[in-house]
């Protein structure tokens, strides 16, 4: 008889990779190698110059069909994915799918089957349930790649990669960096993916700063140091990542008020001084000014928030071409 052996906690990384170890689906950063992440960053680097050219298109994905399947409303992420696909000359279709119509799993699969029949090559999926991208990747036809554009509180790998790209543009060596992530870690798929990416890239120290109500259980097991006090947590950091605070957190008894939150965890120029003088300030956007960040800091010279948006395009182009096996390594 086979004895029961508890399976290891990590996700089956193989699911994202082909037998040769190439990235086929991009569902989560967790479990990927530093080499794979660097490959994505390097590919993105080669696309950043394209965005600056007057001819903004490359023919890498000509003839490919990409579906944006958004089961959760989004404009910004959807737009960058669409734009990325168009710049790669792919045919792209946006599907905003009413989740109530697909409340039953069967109809979610029906939706997929119908789209598969339209010769699609890639699904870019956003869904309110954690694990939705894995579910779809598991059930799609084998020739289709899936990119996770955010599933529940689980993962948002392309957002994390554009953040890594931004950091790499400004700082040289990840191992020498202190990075602080501030705010609602509990509900943030972005934070989870950032933490994995930072640790895979061997970041010196990753901190999370939030009250206990906004931290998931045993968060330190993700490889972070926990701070409840913003002032202490910001001390000598090189990178500050502010997270967006959803208004509904007040009604869920997680926080008393926006005022108190801003007073304790809002980033203003005084507090920014606690970090290293050359620290950069990031935010996945859209920022709630006066709730988690002051306008002065958001628009200040240490803020790289607008650059992040621009890099998002290059990183998504990189992820798409790598997953579809169309990236040769030098596109510029």
């Amino acid at each position: 008889m086979t004895h029961y052996v508890p399976r290891p906690g990590a996700l089956p990384v193989n699911m994202q990779l082909t037998e040769e170890g190439r990235l086929k689906h991009f569902l989560t950063v967790e479990g990927l190698s530093a080499q794979t992440l660097i490959e994505i960053l390097d590919a993105a680097e080669s696309f950043t110059s394209i965005s600056g050219q007057s001819v903004k298109k490359v023919p890498l994905l000509r003839g490919k069909t990409i579906f944006n399947l958004f089961f959760e409303p989004s404009t910004r992420t959807l737009t960058t994915f669409e734009l990325a696909a168009r710049r790669l000359s792919a045919d792209v279709m946006n599907m905003n799918i009413n989740t109530s119509a697909t409340a039953k799993g069967e109809s979610l699969l029906d939706t997929l089957r119908n789209l598969e029949a339209m010769y699609s090559d890639m699904f870019i999926v956003r869904h309110g349930n954690s694990g939705a991208a894995q579910f779809i990747a598991r059930h799609v036809a084998p020739h289709i790649s899936v990119i996770n554009a955010g599933d529940g509180n689980h993962a948002h790998p392309t957002q994390a990669m554009l953040d890594m790209f931004t950091i790499r543009r400004h700082k040289t060596d990840f191992s020498a960096l202190r990075v602080a992530i501030v705010g609602d870690i509990l509900h943030s798929r972005v934070a989870r993916s950032q933490i994995h990416a930072l640790n895979i890239l061997n970041t010196g120290e990753v901190r999370v700063i939030a009250p206990k109500t906004l931290l998931p259980a045993e968060v330190e097991q993700l490889g972070v140091r926990v701070y409840h006090d913003l002032q202490q947590g910001l001390k000598d950091v090189d990178v500050i990542i502010m997270l967006r605070l959803q208004k509904e957190r007040m009604s869920g008894a997680l926080l008393p008020s926006e005022n108190e939150y801003y007073r304790l965890y809002g980033l203003d120029s005084e507090r920014l001084k606690l970090a290293k003088p050359d620290a950069i300030v990031m935010h996945p956007g859209p920022a709630n000014r006066g709730v988690e960040i002051s306008s002065e800091v958001a628009d200040g010279k240490q803020s790289v928030i607008l650059q992040q948006v621009g890099y998002g395009l290059a990183v998504r182009m990189a992820a798409m071409t790598i997953c579809l096996g169309s990236h040769s390594g030098d596109q510029a």
Binding site: G9, E30, H154, R192, P216, A217, V219, Q221, L222
Partner: peptide
């Protein structure tokens, strides 16, 4: 716990 935290599943 640690697993739900990693998977982003409501605990």
């Amino acid at each position: 716990g640690a697993v739900a935290t990693r998977l982003g599943l409501p605990g």
